[in-house]
Nucleic acid binder design. Structure first.
Length: 481
RNA sequence: GGUCGGUUCAUCUAAGGGUUAGGAUUCAAGAUUUUCAUUCUUGCCAUAGGGGUUCGAAUCCCCUACCGACUGCCA
């Protein structure tokens, strides 16, 4: 079997979105699984859309994601250059060959003429006007310097069939195909031409790309045939959707890799999640390291239908990764989130508590908000069916808790539980209810980084007592009104 | 409009003619945890509709509906 060579060919037009990342991932996994090469090629043939910084974003993303390419603009390789704008002369040479073989022709039509071809439903189909120009007419225009594009000459009859490893055999009538522009009048190739030339020259064995290219693939096959080149294996991928109707788009902002990173998602978790969108490993496993993904990846598991991106499930998967981090690693990762906390607290303790309780790092500010901002919380938090607690109960029980708490000198978990125990005996209220009330009374928050005793320890005796008294006061005021 | 592709719980998906249609996330209930969370158990929830073929269809065929992509000198 020939060497497997896959490529990731993004156009540098901004951020790297999750769908693109998955395309890169699948290509990478497939190459690695088969001991092949993963190539990066920059498709910057649209000068108007190219953004300077975008190439750096691509390198950065690939690096953070751990998808290292074997060949590319920065790493080199024997199929360079790997940036399409640096390959202009190559495309021109091949376009010339196609013209000589009558598989392409020069088109001198103006934008205005092209626009006039638009039908009532807003569609436009080129009428092959310049295909019928005589040799002399063409030479004259060329000599006169009339701007021109090179168009692919598509047969007007017959069928073109291609095989896709995901979607199977697809056949279209050639008359449905357009005489696509191959070389633009600015001398740059279109994607339609460059991808064919480059994939061939770079000896790409398997073409992984979004299914939006499914309908132009017949045109590509026609080009391969015209050149007499071997056709690569096609692997078209279903789209990742934001919801039932919309593709994940760059405009959403939260659809790109870096944003997820900024929100505190771990690269490994994102990759793991994205790998499973549109591909299944044929068993019930959901957590995979990149090595395991390489081992299990198989084109047969790729599905044909699009998948909706579910951040809730990503959060769950991410929490699995968070939990398996070492305490040190988690603490190091969480530390920056503590910067905004003014009140001094035991950060190591906080990290230990937080690690099993968050989905993403960005949950931390919300969970720790009570440390600085406590007053004025909603008293209805005392009501809990589960803990059999109520505001009324808080009022009757808080004075006893405070009294007992004031007596102890050692302010640690065990001692605080003793306080609860004594209060429970005194008042006849279940410890679970007491703990609920105390937790709310010292944090004013429903979701906290720990239980009642842990929150008290975190806050210290003085602050805990101050808060208990404040809460009692608030509860009393509530009942006076 | 045309062409191509798709359609299983809310979401990601399994079941390549024969299962009570399975798993996961979410949600709900219970258990464990001296507390929040974790963990565990249980539950809720799906084959788009209609015709065929077949002893038997989520699975094969046809029609309809819906969704998406393409229909650019974007990629």
């Amino acid at each position: 079997m020939d060497t497997v060579r896959t490529r990731f060919a993004p156009s540098p037009t901004g951020f790297m979105h999750i769908g693109n990342l998955r395309t890169a991932l699948y290509g990478y996994l497939f190459a690695k699984k088969h001991g092949g090469k993963f190539i990066l090629r920059i498709e910057d043939t649209d000068q108007e859309r190219t953004i300077d910084d975008a190439v750096r974003v691509i390198y950065r993303t690939l690096q953070l994601a751990g998808l290292q390419h074997d060949e590319g603009p920065d790493t080199g390789g024997d199929c360079g250059p790997y940036v399409q704008s640096a390959r202009k002369s190559i495309y021109l040479r091949y376009a010339k060959e196609l013209i000589d073989r009558r598989h392409a022709y020069c088109c001198f039509c103006s934008r205005e003429r092209l626009d006039s071809l638009t039908d009532e439903s807003g569609n436009r189909r080129y009428d092959k006007h310049c295909l019928h120009l005589s040799q002399e007419e063409t030479m004259e225009k060329l000599a006169a310097g009339v701007p021109f594009a090179v168009r692919q000459k598509v047969p007007e009859t017959g069928y073109t069939t291609f095989t896709d490893l995901v979607y199977g055999d697809i056949t279209v009538e050639n008359r449905e195909l357009h005489d696509n522009v191959l070389i633009k009048s600015d001398g740059f190739p279109t994607y339609n031409f460059a991808n064919v030339v480059d994939d061939h020259l770079m000896r790409i064995s398997h073409v992984f790309r979004g299914m939006e290219y499914l309908s132009s693939t017949p045109n590509y096959n026609l080009l391969y045939h015209a050149f007499g080149w071997e056709i690569p294996q096609y692997v078209h991928l279903p789209h990742i959707m934001r919801d039932k109707h919309h593709k994940l788009s760059k405009r959403d902002g939260d659809a790109n890799f870096e944003d997820f990173l900024n929100k505190g998602f771990l690269p490994a978790a994102i990759l793991n999640y994205v790998a499973l969108l549109g591909w299944n490993p044929k068993n019930d496993t959901e957590k995979f390291t990149i090595e395991e993904l390489i081992e299990h990846f198989d084109i047969n598991g790729i599905s044909k239908s699009s998948a909706v991106f579910d951040e809730v499930k990503l959060r769950w998967l991410n929490s699995l990764y968070v939990k398996e981090m070492s305490q040190e690693a988690f603490h190091a990762a969480a530390k920056p989130c503590y910067k905004t906390i003014d009140t001094p607290v035991d950060e190591v303790l906080l990290s230990r508590l937080l690690q099993t309780r968050i989905g993403v790092l960005s949950d931390i500010p919300g969970m720790t908000a009570f440390i600085d901002a406590f007053e004025g919380y909603n008293l209805s938090l005392f009501d809990s069916k589960d803990a059999k607690s109520s505001l009324q109960l808080a009022q009757t029980v808080l004075p006893a808790v405070i009294e007992e708490a004031e007596k102890i000198t050692v302010w640690e978990n065990d001692e605080i539980f003793d306080v609860m125990e004594r209060t429970s005996v005194q008042t006849g209220v279940k410890k679970k209810s007491l703990l609920w009330i105390v937790r709310i009374a010292v944090t004013g928050q429903l979701s906290t980084p720990g239980g009642a005793s842990e929150m008290c320890v975190l806050l210290g005796k003085a602050e805990s007592l101050r808060r208990l008294k404040y809460s009692l006061e608030q509860v009393n005021i509530n009942f006076q009104i």
